[in-house]
Structure formats: structure tokens, C-alpha cells
Design a binder for these strands. Structure first.
Length: 687
DNA sequence: GCAAGGTC
């Protein structure tokens, strides 16, 4: 081979090693040299690639491990008592690179030295844009000439399919500074506000515990823009359960037996809370004696297959079906991901990209596992394109299996998460379940009553997705429109409304998701945090009211709940035991006094914090999700170029400074709440 | 001893 001219060098940097490896293997075409770096996870991949804009280049593909740069206050602010916490609103912030990440920064600097182009391959979301900016700054330290125009680009990609990656490689775009700045403002605000309120809360509330309990420990009492609203959801539901007052209602039950089948009709009014009108309507029914069939309608119905799997959905399903809490599910999913069995587990996307070869992924699942035959059936013509959800983060595809692994090679938890991911994916590629639904309405006196029946005709996706239930109900006897009959039984019945259950983890995740609290990657951490901080604890949800059946004593014995008398002195009836009926999930295998679902109970401290802040009467509550939502809107405004980072940071800090000042003025409200809930009656401490 | 966001 003739000696080459000095080749153009391109440095590519991804957000994580898995992307660097995947991109290198697609672009390098089997001719990739791998080199170690100073970090055990990060490798450099060297190969040739012919970029349309730059010609044949020598490419070094490497990565960071998420954010490279850390931020904290200067060390003179480390001592909590050396300054007022509010000084943190304006204290200088220093940036630095953590020791374990220094080799990664060094690698970028040295690799940038001889590069003509820097090509950034971070995830295509706001954080990715920001991480891209961190990478750019590091590369510039190693090679200032990269600051010339048209030297730094980023790739736009949302999955690591070969064709998609090659397309991205050939169509570089520029980094979006606005998005990067939105994240810089979030980082600064979270740090200043979180640190300031945490110190203030700890320094002003912790001493109460120490005075009261002597040396008994009460750790850090923290505030964060995500953890506090998370706690707020838990407390809100708890108080709703505790303050629940059952109401008596009346309903009319109608039953008719025909062809040896007993059909129960539901009252169209469902129930009334006043007895008199219910009785009057019931008497009209009796007076009429005869009921007339007003509608008989049989029509096809279907149960839709599930949407492609997002992180939030994985966490919810983990709680419901797999007996794992959200942080456990994520840990297991990450291990399956790093082993190469499933795709990246942190995604908001519930749409598969048109370019993905889904059939090839289904084919891999025909190799084994209890679902092999069902996967084969999809290959034999059963395949149906997945539904599209509404979310696309443009950074990652939905969670799906990327390779087949014998379930026996996995530990128990990995096996159940892997099985779930596979079954969910195969369900997405199956047909909806089909059935036939019959609705019957009757007019009895002045009242309408309804009955319906379902016949499942084709289970389709349900065969592989064992987590969903859809079963034929009792077959209805033949009724004709216009037919009249005298109901076999009609009676008026009273009942009581029942309280909602305590918040379950799937419900909590859904609330956080709907309110923009945390990201797919961090929701589980916030939930863990409110447990670690002793703001809330969990117990398995009982399926039946307590004391029933008594075959599962062990379930309630494990945990020592903190002082349970949090509602001392509150009005409302006792008896509000957690039983909600909602969010039920699948029956446990074979037995079951409890579902796998955990429910969240705030501790006395958790209730006190929420109530204390609520009682201060600010129009914007720190425990409600609005502030976080507002921050989200401001970040959007920065991304859209409508506002600057400096404006947003300044305005938000002033807003919180105001809250802080008023918190200080009304500190006794907070302390009183803590005394009331955590330290016994308020009278005991009146000095 | 603080937050939330990346990632391993």
C-alpha cells in the first residue's frame, strides 16, 4: 500500500460506553481497534470512516459516563453553621471533575489534540445536549483550534440500528446551546435551593428532636424539588384515607333468571345517597311489575395489546406483576442491559422507529424459553406492527429484548424482568385480543338497568402476555328487544362508600410521571430517598380488609412502623384500613392475602413536614408539584430561545428567597407541626 | 451532612 497522506482525524464522544461500542461497530465495519483508557468502563475504538463532508478519516470513538463536570459551593461554605443557609442563594459555585472521572477527561483532551473535528454522540435530549457541552469544553482544552467554525458537530440519532446510525454519521448537526443552558440553570437552581432549604430545615427542626429525645438520632431533614412533592403525594393520600367518612348509599338490585341463568342488572343511576328518592323509584319499579327489554346489542370488541415499554411502565408493572419495587426493577434491568440481553432501560419512548427490524428480534425469541412457540407463531404470520404511543424522547427506543438468553442462565429476579420484557415485546407484535360484547338494557318502571356479557373469541396477545386478564363473563341468555318479563328478584339495598387505599408504588410513579417529578432515570431514586430520610415507609397492601382469613401473618410482622398515632386529635373515623380495590394487579401464584403491591404510609415526620409547610399558607406550596412544573416551563422557554439562563436563574432564586424569608418568619408553624406529630401533645412544650 | 441529573 502506498503511504497515506496525513489523515484527517475525527474524535467522536458518546454519552456512555454502550453507544460508543455500537456506533464503532456499525461505522468501523469489522475493522475496529480497541484500546483501553484510564477508566475501566471507557474504551477507545479506532477505525476508518468515509464521512461525506470530510472524506476518509481516522476516527477515535470514545465516551464519557454521563455528566463529566460536578458543581458545588466553594469549600468555605462547607460548614453549615458558618453562614446563614440563605447565603447559598448567591454563594459562588465551583466546577470540578471528580477523581474517578479525571482519566475520562484526560482521554478526551489528549484524543482531541490531533483531531480536526469533534463529533458528539450524546443522547438527543436536554441532558445529552448539556453533556455534549461539557465534552466540547474538555476537548477545547486539549485543542483550541477546534473552536474554529465548523469543527464541532453532534449526531442526531434515536436508536442504534445500523442504518439509522450510518444516516446520523452522514448528517451532522450542531449542538443546541439553548438546551444545554436550560440544564445549566436546572443544575444551579436545584443545588442552591436544595442545599439552602435542607440546611435550614435540618438546623431548625432537628434540635427539637434532640431536646425531646436526648441523644436519639434524627438524621438530616432534606428538601428537594423532587423529593418533597413525592412526599406530598404520599401524605395527601394518607390524609384522604384517614379523614375518610363513609357515606351510606342506596341502590336497586334487579335479578332475572332465564334459561337457568341468573342475570344481575345494574341500576343506571348506580346509587343514590338519599334514601327517600331511592325508595320512591324502587316502588315505581315494583308498581310497574313488568320490565321491558329496550336494547339488545351484540358487537365485536377488542382488548388492545399493550404499548411499547417505557421505563415508567416497566416500574409500574414491576410493582404490580413482579413483586419488585421500582428501584429494584431498575437495578435488575440495568444489569440485563449491561449484559446485552435487553435494550437501554431508561426511555420515555413508546413508539418503535419504523426502521427497526422487529421481526429479527422476534425471531431471536424462538430459540427457547416458554414463549418460544408463541414467538414462532408470530414468525409464521401472526406478526402485527406494534401500536404507537404518544411519547418519543428521540433518544432511545422502547425497552425490548435485543438477544435471547436461556432463562436458566439468569438469577430469579433477572429472569422475571427479562421474561416480562420479552413477553411485553412479543405482545406488542401480536394482534389485539378479540371478543364479542352483548349489552342489554331494560326499562323497569321509570328506571333503566343494564347487563352485559363478554365472549372472548381470540386471545391473541393475551397468550404471551400473561399479566393481563380478559375472560369471558357468564354467557347471557337470549333476550329480544321489546320482550317483557317480571324480574325474578328486585330489592333495595344499602351500602357504604369505602375509603381509597393508601398510595401504591404504581400510583405514585404515575403521579410523578404526570406531574413531571423526576425523570425516567430518577423517579425510583426519589421514592427511595423519601424512605431513607424517614419520611415514609411501605407495607404490602392487603387484598382483603385486615383480619380476614389470617393465613398470612408473616406479611405484617416484618417491619417496625414508626409511631403510628400520627392522626392524634384529628377528626375522622378510625377504621380506615388500606383497601382500595384499585390497582389490583394479577393474582399471586396460588395463594394470596396480599398482592405484590406495596403501599406508602408517611411517617409522623413526613406528615409534619407537609402539614407544617401547608399551614404556612403560601400560595405556592413546596410540597405540591407546581413549582417543579414551573421550572419545567422555564427550561422550555430557554430551549425555545424566549428566555435566557441568567433571567430564569435570577427570577427563580428571588422567588425562593421570598419563600425562605417567609418560612423564617413562620418557623413556629413548622415547629408546631413537628411537635404535634412527632413529639406528643403541643401543650407539653409551651415555653 | 445539602439537590437532581447523567452513568457503571
Amino acid at each position: 500500500m502506498p503511504p497515506r497522506r496525513q489523515q484527517t482525524k475525527v474524535l467522536c464522544v458518546a454519552e456512555k460506553p454502550s453507544i460508543a461500542k455500537a456506533v464503532a461497530s456499525h461505522l468501523g465495519g469489522g475493522q475496529v481497534n480497541t484500546h483501553n483508557t484510564g477508566n475501566r468502563y471507557v474504551k477507545n475504538y479506532v477505525f476508518q470512516y468515509n464521512f461525506p463532508a470530510w472524506g476518509e478519516c481516522e476516527v477515535t470513538m470514545t465516551s464519557v459516563l454521563g455528566h463529566l463536570v460536578s458543581r458545588d459551593f466553594e469549600s468555605r461554605y462547607n460548614n453549615w453553621r458558618a453562614c446563614d443557609p440563605s447565603a447559598l442563594f448567591e454563594a459562588p459555585i465551583q466546577t470540578y471533575i471528580q477523581d474517578d472521572l479525571k482519566p475520562i477527561a484526560e482521554n478526551i483532551k489528549s484524543q482531541a489534540r490531533f483531531a480536526k473535528y469533534l463529533y458528539i454522540w450524546t443522547d438527543c435530549d436536554r441532558e445529552g445536549e448539556n453533556i455534549g457541552d461539557e465534552i466540547r469544553q474538555e476537548a477545547l482544552k486539549g485543542n483550541a483550534s477546534l473552536s474554529q467554525p465548523n469543527r464541532i458537530f453532534r449526531a442526531r440519532f434515536s436508536n442504534i440500528e445500523r442504518a439509522h446510525i450510518i444516516n446520523a454519521a452522514c448528517n451532522p448537526v450542531t449542538l443546541d446551546d439553548a438546551q444545554a443552558n436550560a440544564v445549566y440553570s436546572r443544575i444551579e437552581l436545584d443545588l442552591r435551593i436544595g442545599a439552602c432549604f435542607t440546611r435550614n430545615l435540618t438546623l431548625s427542626v432537628q434540635p427539637l428532636f434532640h431536646q425531646h429525645f436526648g441523644n436519639r438520632e434524627q438524621g438530616l431533614i432534606s428538601y428537594g424539588s423532587c423529593q418533597f412533592p413525592t412526599l406530598g403525594f404520599v401524605v395527601e393520600r394518607y390524609l384522604r384515607v384517614r379523614n375518610f367518612v363513609p357515606e351510606t348509599f342506596w341502590t336497586i338490585k334487579v335479578m332475572h333468571e332465564k334459561e337457568d341463568i341468573k342475570v344481575n342488572f345494574r341500576w343506571a343511576r348506580n346509587h343514590l345517597f338519599d334514601r327517600m328518592p331511592a325508595v320512591i323509584l324502587f316502588e315505581r319499579c315494583l308498581a310497574a311489575r313488568i320490565a321491558r327489554v329496550t336494547k339488545v346489542q351484540t358487537k365485536p370488541t377488542s382488548k388492545w395489546k399493550p404499548l411499547p415499554l417505557t421505563t415508567v411502565e416497566l416500574q409500574k408493572c414491576g410493582s404490580r406483576f413482579l413483586y419488585m419495587d421500582s428501584s429494584r426493577v431498575m437495578t435488575v434491568a440495568e444489569s440485563l442491559y449491561t449484559k446485552g440481553w435487553i435494550s437501554y432501560p431508561r426511555t420515555e419512548t413508546d413508539q418503535f422507529d419504523g426502521g427497526m427490524d422487529l421481526r429479527a428480534l422476534v425471531q431471536k425469541q424462538t430459540q427457547g424459553g416458554p414463549w418460544a412457540g408463541l414467538a414462532q407463531a408470530l414468525m409464521n404470520g401472526g406478526f402485527s406492527a406494534p401500536r404507537n404511543g404518544r411519547n418519543n424522547d428521540k433518544a432511545h427506543p422502547p425497552i425490548h429484548p435485543v438477544n435471547f438468553v436461556e432463562p436458566t442462565q439468569l438469577d430469579a429476579q433477572e429472569r422475571s424482568v427479562y421474561e416480562f420484557v420479552v413477553r411485553r415485546f412479543l405482545a406488542c407484535c401480536s394482534e389485539d385480543a378479540r371478543g364479542s360484547k352483548t349489552d342489554i338494557s331494560i326499562l323497569y318502571g321509570t328506571e333503566t338497568f343494564n347487563a352485559s356479557g363478554l365472549v372472548v373469541l381470540a386471545r391473541n396477545y393475551l397468550d404471551v402476555y400473561k399479566y393481563d386478564r380478559w375472560t369471558s363473563s357468564q354467557v347471557l341468555p337470549d333476550f329480544q328487544e321489546g320482550e317483557v318479563f317480571e324480574p325474578t328478584e328486585a330489592r333495595i339495598q344499602d351500602g357504604k362508600t369505602s375509603p381509597p387505599g393508601y398510595l401504591t408504588e404504581p400510583e405514585l410513579i404515575a403521579l410523578m410521571d404526570a406531574n413531571g417529578i423526576g425523570t425516567d432515570a430518577t423517579m425510583a431514586e426519589h421514592i427511595l430517598k423519601i424512605k431513607e430520610r424517614n419520611y415514609a415507609w411501605v407495607q404490602p397492601r392487603g387484598r382483603r380488609p385486615q383480619g380476614n382469613d389470617g393465613d398470612d401473618e408473616a406479611e405484617s410482622g416484618g417491619e417496625a412502623p414508626p409511631a403510628a398515632n400520627a392522626t392524634r386529635g384529628r377528626r375522622g373515623r378510625g377504621g380506615a384500613r388500606g383497601r382500595g380495590g384499585r390497582g389490583g394487579g394479577v393474582e399471586g401464584p396460588g395463594r394470596g392475602a396480599t398482592t405484590g403491591v406495596q403501599e406508602f404510609i408517611p411517617t409522623t415526620l413526613g406528615v409534619a413536614l407537609v402539614e407544617g409547610y401547608e399551614n404556612m399558607g403560601f400560595e405556592i406550596s413546596l410540597t405540591k408539584p407546581f413549582l417543579r412544573k414551573e421550572m419545567e416551563l422555564k427550561m422550555k422557554a430557554i430551549c425555545d430561545g424566549q428566555r435566557t439562563k441568567a433571567e430564569v436563574v435570577h427570577e427563580t432564586i428571588e422567588q425562593y428567597r421570598d419563600v425562605y424569608v417567609r418560612t423564617q418568619q413562620r418557623l413556629n408553624v413548622l415547629r408546631d407541626a413537628v411537635r404535634k406529630y412527632c413529639l406528643g401533645p403541643i401543650e407539653a412544650h409551651n415555653g
